[in-house]
Design a protein around this nucleic acid. Sequence first.
DNA 1: CCTTGACTCTCCCCCAGGGGGAGACCGCCA
DNA 2: TGGCGGTCTCCCCCTGGGGGAGAGTCAAGG
Lengths: 274, 274
Amino acid sequence: MSGLLYAIGEVSRITGLSVKALRLYQEKGLLLPSRVDPSSGYRYYTERDIAQAHTLRALRDLRLSLEEIRGVLEELDQGASLSEHLTKVRARLADEAASAQRSVLALDTLLRHQEQAEAYLRAPPPLLERWLPGMRVAVHRARGRYSDASQVFPRLLAACGPKVGGAPFCLYHEAEYREDDADISWCVPLPPGARPEGVQVEELPEVQAATLVHTGPPDSVGPSWARLFAHLHAHERIPAVPLRETFLRVGANEAVSSSWRTELALSWEAKHGG
Amino acid sequence: MSGLLYAIGEVSRITGLSVKALRLYQEKGLLLPSRVDPSSGYRYYTERDIAQAHTLRALRDLRLSLEEIRGVLEELDQGASLSEHLTKVRARLADEAASAQRSVLALDTLLRHQEQAEAYLRAPPPLLERWLPGMRVAVHRARGRYSDASQVFPRLLAACGPKVGGAPFCLYHEAEYREDDADISWCVPLPPGARPEGVQVEELPEVQAATLVHTGPPDSVGPSWARLFAHLHAHERIPAVPLRETFLRVGANEAVSSSWRTELALSWEAKHGG
DNA sequence: CCTTGACTCTCCCCCAGGGGGAGACCGCCA
DNA sequence: TGGCGGTCTCCCCCTGGGGGAGAGTCAAGG
């Protein structure tokens, strides 16, 4: 029979959902008490309702919004495949997690470089959207870490001869931050007609990107990257690889932070069928 | 002189902050326009105001709340050390990131084990807070991965002889999830008086923990762990290591998911001076 | 039967961080 | 002088509830 009825306070104690939350879920149609006394308005819940409440709680603990929970509950009721809604939720949460993680890394940078941080916060560099022109580059692609630049660029520059077509840059082919083992292309733009030997040459297409010029040593770019990602996010654009760091001015010394100048460029995915 | 004044729409275009947001920041005292026309109410901003707006924007992009931004701005104005506020913000964001990351891992589990997922969502296991009793255990601690259990436990059990004091369990000494290279203790409870040879013996203290019994193969525990973390978070408790997985029933086959039963236990830090 | 204390009801205001829109001014150019 | 775009204030909306006021209810004990 299981005709047992539970008052709202008991359900709250059993499920760990607050009384306020239970009333809200009723109002939203997510969890209807099986019986509501017409004269007193008291809510009474059955065992089945409590099971539903537990489900709801499990989903809420996974940080689903009430709307998302509604979708999953309906799919559960109809025995449809869960994957449709859950895949979207996963994407949203992965986005959230990545964003928070980037902010943490950026804050670590700010905390490590105190004076740098004050300068950055007092006058954060302007953010511009522009087209990065297509160009021909000498390129060396490998897995490694940023600091390999000091070995790679001299080799590339030597192969290119005395004239180059612009500031050297790196392309990062994965969006996640990784200390080492990143998939990097080191690139040197070539002047028209140049035919360097012993290096690979590639033609890069033009691409639209959000860009800013960061001032400071190489390991202080975190907050600037976070800004670029936040900018795209605010405009509902999906960041695309590769990320580009162009070394406009390279300092001899990490201590003289203003002697470093790096342009960061983040492009985004073209709209599908747009 | 830079006596140039900018109307709110221009500032919005320059900084990327919406007009609504700019008015809100004024109301909250975060960004006051240098001049407000007394008769028309029009807001006019100077270059300095715009610099401040850029700072504000950079901080907002780092996911700081307006209250946190207020704190940082005041410290910037007074030239005090930034680290005080920023350290707190970092902690908050790291917490957020970890929570979202756990949810993503849990959702991945649910998507991988479809039927498992439905069973879990239809009847999520009850969550209990209880005291894990202190006990004497035979223990082998090493870096490795969960699946090493099939090698380690037979060795431990052989050393303990025919009688053991309870179900074997693992202790994870780091809170972050890692596929391999986790710091794990494999433990077998000992009956009173037992003196096994060739293995290390330890005395575990009793500890209070949030626990639940998960049904399903070992790689499906993600959502259950996420629930435990969310439970502690809701009660403003800080999770503590080690995490414990007690193997109540071990299935021969991953396919028969209901043949696996694992109790997860998450303890928390004692209140300081509480 | 009455009281008492613990529950529960509805209703309203509050939080962050703004978005959307109505209706009324304002500024500047032709 | 008209028009058009920018701006003003004011109000309601979103999420996921929390806090509390004032009134009604339930069950047990005297």
